[in-house]
C-alpha cells in the first residue's frame, strides 16, 4: 500500500510546489511509482514546474465530479515512466472539492502507487483541509525567515490537531554565507523553535530558477539543491543519509572561473 505525503507550509512562496516536484521526481528516480496531486484549485502551478502543462485534458475536479476516470486524468511524465501528475483545475475554486472526497481519492490511488504526494495550497482554509484529509505524513516546508517560521508553527499545530502520524521539516533556501555573517537564522535555530524532526536542508540555488524555466526538476543533479532533494527522497524511503556539508568551499580557481 502506498503512502500519502502532503507538502505544506502555511505561507506562500516558500517552495512547496518546487519541493513537491523534486521529491516526487526524486522518488521516481529511485524506482518508486509516484503520483503528484496538485490541490491548489484555481491557482495551479505544479504542471508548469513539471513541464507537463500542455498535456492537461482532465483535472482533479473532473475526477472528483466523475466527468472522467482517474486513469484518464493522470498525466504520465515525459522523462520518468513511474511518475504521474494529477493536475488541478484552473477555472474552478477550492469549494469544488471536499476533504472527504480527497480522502476517497487517496484510498483509490494507494494500491496503485508507492507514494502519493500532495501539493497543498498556501493558507489554512478549505484547500489545506482538502490536502491533508487523506495524508499519512506531512512535509512542512519553511524558509529561515520570521514570517515563514511563524506560519510553519501554526501549520504544525493544525497537523497535530489532524493527528498526522508523522511530520517532518524541510528548511528551504538556506544561505550559508548569510548564516555565517549572522544575517540568517540557521537550520538549527529553526529546528529549535519548531521542535520537529528535520528531514532536509535545501540551500538557496539559482539552479532552481533555471529548472523551473525549463520545467525539469533538478533533483539528483550535481547542484547542491539537487543533492539535497535527493537526500530528502532517500530519507523518505527510510535510508540514513548524513546531512550535506553546505560549508564546503569551492576551489580558488572554480571560484574565479566556475559558474556554479
Amino acid at each position: 500500500m502506498g503512502e500519502v505525503i502532503v507538502v505544506t507550509s502555511g505561507k506562500g512562496g516558500v517552495g512547496k510546489t518546487t519541493t513537491t516536484a523534486n521529491v516526487g521526481t526524486g522518488l521516481a528516480k529511485l524506482d518508486k511509482k509516484v503520483v503528484l496531486i496538485d490541490t491548489d484549485i484555481g491557482l495551479r502551478n505544479l504542471d508548469v514546474v513539471m513541464g507537463l502543462e500542455n498535456r492537461i485534458v482532465y483535472n482533479l475536479v473532473d475526477v472528483i465530479e466523475g466527468n472522467c476516470k482517474i486513469k484518464q486524468a493522470l498525466i504520465k511524465d515525459k522523462r520518468y515512466p513511474t511518475l504521474y501528475l494529477l493536475p488541478s483545475a484552473q477555472t474552478r475554486d477550492k469549494s469544488a472539492v471536499k476533504p472527504e472526497e480527497m480522502k476517497q481519492l487517496c484510498e483509490q490511488l494507494k494500491p496503485e502507487f508507492d507514494y502519493i504526494i500532495i501539493d497543498c495550497p498556501a493558507g489554512i482554509e478549505q484547500g489545506f483541509e482538502n490536502a491533508v484529509a487523506g495524508a499519512d505524513r506531512a512535509l512542512v516546508v519553511t524558509t529561515p525567515e520570521v514570517s515563514a517560521v511563524r506560519d510553519a508553527d501554526r501549520i504544525i499545530g493544525l497537523l497535530e490537531a489532524h493527528e498526522m502520524k508523522k511530520t517532518d521539516l524541510i528548511v528551504n533556501r538556506l544561505r550559508m554565507d548569510m548564516v555565517k555573517t549572522g544575517d540568517m537564522m540557521s537550520s538549527e535555530d529553526v529546528v529549535e523553535i519548531l521542535a520537529i524532526n528535520l528531514i532536509g536542508i535545501v540551500p538557496d540555488d539559482e539552479g532552481i530558477i533555471v529548472a523551473t524555466n525549463n520545467g525539469e526538476p533538478l533533483v539528483g543533479n550535481d547542484t547542491k539543491a539537487g543533492q539535497a532533494y535527493m537526500n530528502i527522497c532517500k530519507r523518505i524511503i527510510g535510508e540514513e543519509v548524513p546531512f550535506l556539508d553546505l560549508n564546503a568551499k569551492k576551489g580558488f580557481f572554480s571560484r574565479l572561473f566556475g559558474r556554479k
Binding site: 511563524r150 549572522g182 540568517m184 537564522m185 523553535i193
Partner: peptide, 23 residues
C-alpha cells in the same frame, strides 16, 4: 572587517516571542 551582524538572533528572539502569543 565586517562586524558580525545580529539580525539572525533578533529574528530568533522575535519569532520566539511571537510564537509564545500565537501558541
Amino acid at each position: 572587517f565586517k562586524k558580525k551582524s545580529d539580525s539572525a538572533s533578533n529574528a530568533v528572539n522575535r519569532i520566539k516571542f511571537v510564537l509564545q502569543s500565537d501558541r
